[in-house]
């Protein structure tokens, strides 16, 4: 029994959702939770940084338009950090012009999702595929 519990905990991946729209954040969190992910939610980059400092996060889902520091600047900060710089970051934003996607990818994002053209289910599948490829 204990062994099984340990295995499950090892398999549970921790996802940090950085999204200022709490309604959308909750819908996304609901989908990830139903797929046995551990979820942390942050409404701004300051909260997100605190979580990254304290906890072991496996992947960050990051919005671009955020109060205070914007998503792209925060992404650059994540990538420059020695502690959690290797954590993959998937941008989920409703900004989707080619130059915006390019800016995100050039700043170190693993993938860029335009939220309106996607569903929470598709985002979960994308995250699973990214995490599977990682050691």
């Amino acid at each position: 029994m204990e062994n099984n519990k340990e295995n499950n905990e090892q398999a549970t991946k921790h996802i940090l959702i950085v999204e200022d729209d709490t309604f959308m954040s909750s819908l996304l969190a609901r989908k990830f939770s139903s797929e046995n992910f551990k979820i942390s939610a942050a409404a701004n980059t300051q909260q997100a940084q605190e979580i990254l400092e304290k906890e072991n996060v496996n992947l960050v889902i990051l919005d671009v338009v955020l109060p205070g520091t914007d998503g792209i600047t925060f992404l650059k900060n994540i990538k420059a950090n020695s502690k959690y710089g290797s954590v993959p970051v998937v941008i989920a934003s409703n900004l989707g012009q080619p130059e915006e996607v390019k800016a995100g990818m050039n700043s170190g994002a693993t993938d860029y999702i335009v939220k309106s053209n996607s569903s929470p289910g598709e985002i979960v599948e994308k995250v699973k595929s990214i995490l599977e490829k990682r050691p």
Partner: peptide, 9 residues
């Protein structure tokens, strides 16, 4: 897109 995404999701 933002409110539409909220409704869609």
């Amino acid at each position: 897109r933002t409110p539409l995404t909220g409704i869609k999701w």
